[in-house]
């Protein structure tokens, strides 16, 4: 009986919310004077960045991105502290069978290519689709591949944490430099260069590269912690 009531309530709620969202009509032009036109114009005219998504994520709303990077950092820290005392009882790894020779041979070949792709994606974040988060995730998948294929493959936790911290410091530090130089936190203080060049966009590529390193180090750390289910010792 209780379950039926809950299901009915959820159905009513879902229907109500569903119709609301359906009626909003996402994708239709709603507003003449929102912030969108300003963003599109300033990105090209002032920041000299060809990827508007990047300019919004890193510059206009860079403060949110700094927060999101911190969220990831905290999630990794919290995960590490929860799994700290756990010791796996069967073996050191939760993977119980070894991978075939095709996987081990292939992953050696693929690993550098995956890393290169990841680096390309975050270095060109201000020019083409992609950016720090995406590039970082691609790099972490490279490490996941290696961890899956080689049972004794290990990543130094110390170095991961150093890379993670340094990348974070670069992000916050660039923000503070803008505060010292230009007047507000995260404000661009470097020359913006020529549109569509690799060296353009002021601080945007620097921040995105730092985000790329940070995300890569953090996600690799998560994979490593969960796979081994024991903390550093």
């Amino acid at each position: 009986m209780k379950k039926v009531i809950v299901i009915l309530l959820l159905a009513a709620l879902g229907f109500y919310l569903g119709t609301t969202f359906f009626n909003i009509g996402f994708g239709d032009p709603h507003f003449a004077n929102g912030v969108k036109d300003f963003y599109l114009k300033e990105t090209v005219d002032n920041l000299h960045v060809s990827n508007t998504v990047t300019s919004i994520v890193v510059n206009f709303r860079g403060f949110d991105t700094l927060g999101e990077v911190t969220v990831l950092f905290l999630a990794v820290t919290a995960l590490g502290s929860i799994l700290y005392k756990r010791r796996h009882e069967v073996g050191t790894r939760s993977v119980l069978f070894s991978s075939s020779s095709v996987v081990t041979a292939g992953s050696k070949l693929l690993f550098p290519a995956v890393i290169l792709l990841g680096v390309y994606v975050f270095v060109h974040g201000h020019l083409s689709p992609g950016g720090g988060f995406q590039g970082g995730v691609i790099i972490a998948t490279g490490f996941l591949l290696m961890l899956l294929s080689y049972e004794n493959y290990s990543v130094s936790h110390k170095w991961l944490s150093i890379v993670e911290s340094l990348a974070g410091i670069v992000f916050a530090g660039v923000g503070l430099l803008g505060f010292i130089n230009g007047g507000t936190f995260l404000q661009n203080f470097l020359p913006t260069g020529v549109l569509n060049n690799l060296f353009s966009g002021g601080v945007i590529p620097i921040i995105y590269i730092a985000v790329g390193f940070k995300v890569a180090a953090e996600l690799t750390g998560v994979i490593y912690t969960v796979l081994h289910e024991k903390g550093v010792k």
Binding site: G178, G183, N188
Partner: peptide, 13 residues
């Protein structure tokens, strides 16, 4: 009221 990244409200945070 402090703006961030040099974009006045409502464009910046």
């Amino acid at each position: 009221v402090e703006v961030i990244a040099g974009w006045a409200p409502p464009f910046g945070i």
